[in-house]
Each structure stands twice: as C-alpha cells, then as structure tokens.
C-alpha cells in the first residue's frame, strides 16, 4: 500500500457501467462459404449427366430430389420416419432415465459413487455396437434390440457428464450457502443441480448424436420397417437415389435434435453469456 494513497477520498473503483449489451446477434452468414458446397453439387450433377457417375453407383442430385418427393407423396418416407423416430424416442427416454438416475446417485452419495461408478466405467469401455449379436439372442430381431441399442448408447454420455457435473460443484459455493442457512435440499436444488446443468446439456448433445448412430446401426439388422429398411430395400434394387434420400433424412434428424438442445442451452445457460 503506497503512502501517497493516504487519505484518498473514498470512491467506487469505477462509475457504474451499464450492463453490457447482449452479445451481438449472430453475424450475417458469409455467402462465400456457400461457393464450394454448391460447386460440389453442380459437379456431382454434371458427372451423372455425362455418364461419368453411373446411377447404380450414385444417382444425380436431381434424381435424389425427385425420389425424395415421390417417397414423401406415397407416404413411404413418412411411415419410415415415424417408425425410426419412435425407436430413437423410446430408446432415448429409457437411456436418459438410466443415465441421469445413475449419474445423480453416483454424484450425490458416496456409497452410490462406490457402487455405481466402477461397473459403469468398465461397461463404458465396451464397444457397445459390438453387443448386437448378444442383443439379437436376448431380444430377437424385432423392435427391442434396436431400442435397447439406442438406450445403451444414450445412457453412457449422460451418466458421465451428469456425474462429473455434480462432482465438480464449487465447494466454496456450497460452503457460502451453508453459511447463509441453506438446508441440504436447498443446496441440492439451488447450488448442486444448477452447477451440473452445463455439463448435463453437453452430455445430452453427445447422447442424441450417439442415439441416431445407434439407430442407423441397429436398423441395418433385419429391419422390416423404418428408414433403415427403406435403405436396405433400396440396395436390393440398386436404387442409390432412395439410399441417399434415407441418408439425408438421417442427417436432418440428427441436426434437428442437436439444434433443439442448443436452443435449450442458450435459454438455460444465459448466465454464462
């Protein structure tokens, strides 16, 4: 402390600054980034038109588009969409309930951590897609193995992130709120769970990614309906256009669920700016 500061008038360290305005709305998209993707589509179309790319290897973008519209009109695509989305939905709900439940138990209680964490960590190292043969033996070839595969894929990322989020709670905040008279339950709801929310949402995004991946793999096995069936059936008839339509729908579904979680993140984590 310097002596020259003696008797300095008491002052706030800075005039109250206005709360910083919300981050700038996202920049307008840079159109230059569209040049190369469009060029690729044009080249693809040209390659097909000139016969360089035969339709039994890859159909032209235009054909894919037309087949997509046809499939949508006939209701085939809609039915497949509903079947596949239902599989992911049920599998996700089961997997999320298990992953969240175990993560909370292992995160909050010492005994829970001792009992739950070791087996989960061991199972996690299994390449779970390799369990398909066992699942077929256990569940047959109906809906169950596909749903089970999705559920399994979903449970692990959620468990790991929820567990880490709860364990990572700032002990200083816990102590401060204890000094403020918080009960155990109040600390749980106002301190521990909110601080675990960011990593839980990260886990949710990973889980949804894995869910679609598990579905795609699961639907390669003996599906008689759904997007996987549409694609496999198209392979029998060398319909590469239908295969591409199926892939595009898979991709769109994955993007859509990711966008939903990102939206939730932006709403729920506003405090992080």
């Amino acid at each position: 402390m310097s002596v020259s500061a003696l008797g300095a008038p008491a002052r706030a360290e800075s005039p109250p600054s206005p709360v910083p305005a919300k981050r700038n709305r996202r920049k307008p998209p840079d159109l230059r980034r569209w040049i190369s993707p469009l060029a690729i589509v044009v080249l693809w179309q040209l390659a097909c038109a000139t016969g360089l790319l035969p339709p039994d290897k890859l159909s032209s973008p235009w054909t894919v588009l037309r087949s997509g519209v046809d499939l949508a009109r006939s209701g085939e695509l809609g039915d497949a969409f509903v079947v596949s989305t239902t599989r992911v939905g049920i599998g996700f709900l089961i997997g999320a309930a298990v992953g969240l439940g175990l993560g909370v138990v292992a995160g909050l209680s010492r005994w829970g951590n001792h009992l739950v964490d070791p087996p989960v960590q061991m199972l996690r190292t299994l390449p779970f897609l390799g369990l398909i043969p066992l699942f077929i033996l256990w569940f047959g070839i109906g809906e169950e193995p596909k749903i089970a595969l999705v559920a399994l894929g979903v449970a692990f990322p959620l468990y790991l992130n929820v567990h880490a989020g709860i364990r990572g709670v700032d002990s200083q905040l816990v102590e401060a709120t204890t000094a403020l008279g918080f009960t155990r339950a109040e600390r749980l709801f106002h301190v521990v769970l909110p601080s675990a929310l960011p990593s839980t949402l990260v886990g949710l995004r990973q889980s949804l990614g894995v869910a679609w991946l598990s579905l795609i793999v699961g639907e390669q096995v003996n599906a008689s309906s759904g997007l996987g069936y549409l694609i496999n059936n198209a392979r029998e008839f060398l319909r590469t256009d239908v295969i591409v339509v199926g892939l595009v729908v898979y991709a769109a579904l994955g993007l859509a669920t990711d966008a939903i979680v990102r939206l939730v993140e932006r709403r729920a984590l506003r405090w992080r700016g």
């Binding site: 200083q172 905040l173 102590e175 709120t177 106002h190 301190v191 601080s195 929310l197 405090w271």
Partner: peptide, 10 residues
Amino acid sequence: FQQPRLLPWR
C-alpha cells in the same frame, strides 16, 4: 469471504 461466492446462475 475472500471470494464473493455469488451463484453465477442467479
């Protein structure tokens, strides 16, 4: 405390 220990989500 030495650190303000505010809840960042409030």
